[in-house]
């Protein structure tokens, strides 16, 4: 299978991902579901301010997906072509299945954002509800849930993943 790497890489500058940036992404997602709007301003990077859309604070059970978190997640997966919600970081995956997804995306030379769901229980349970998917990793491509590890493997082997990614990164 030949991947048009250059095509995949087009426009990837905006989503190249450093460790601190990933941390901020997860951090701001956490903040968005916990803090009232007044506390969500300041001391925040560019990306964080893009993600956080804190509106009026509301009291939510920790097991449910709050409207704030839901809209923050919707925005986040729309803003990045490829997002991997995983256990650990892409530099240090803490689960074999998450590691497999990192390896697949890196093998395909695809720039992607990763979010460590182990950092926050509310994000972790919220993502299960958001995706209607019980496990991690979870992969989003162009704002749409693509699947978990098994689907990534199958998509990688069949070539369907590359097609989806090429379409996503060229759109």
């Amino acid at each position: 299978m030949v991947v048009a790497h250059s095509a995949l890489l087009q426009g990837s500058l905006a989503i190249s991902c450093s460790h601190s940036r990933v941390y901020r992404a997860a951090h701001s997602l956490r903040q968005s579901c916990r803090l009232p709007a007044s506390r969500c301003t300041g001391r925040r990077g560019r990306q964080a301010s893009q993600i956080v859309n804190a509106e009026s604070p509301s009291i939510q059970s920790p097991q449910t997906l709050s409207p704030e978190l839901k809209s923050a997640l919707e925005k986040f997966v729309q803003q990045h072509n490829v997002v991997l919600f995983m256990k650990g970081t892409k530099q240090f995956p803490q689960c074999g299945f998450s590691n497999t997804c990192v390896q697949i995306l890196q093998t395909l030379n695809v720039p992607f954002e990763s979010v460590n769901i182990l950092e926050d229980e509310q994000l972790r349970s919220g993502m299960k509800e958001f995706s209607q998917w019980p496990t991690f990793p979870q992969v989003y491509i162009n704002g749409e849930f693509y699947g978990g590890c098994d689907i990534m493997i199958e998509g990688y082997q069949s070539g369907e993943l590359v097609e989806t990614l090429e379409a996503a990164l060229n759109s």
């Binding site: 209607q132 849930f145 693509y146 699947g147 978990g148 689907i151 199958e154």
Partner: peptide, 8 residues
């Protein structure tokens, strides 16, 4: 059904 739906 597509693969994602089968998994679901």
């Amino acid at each position: 059904k597509r693969l994602l739906d089968r998994h679901r």
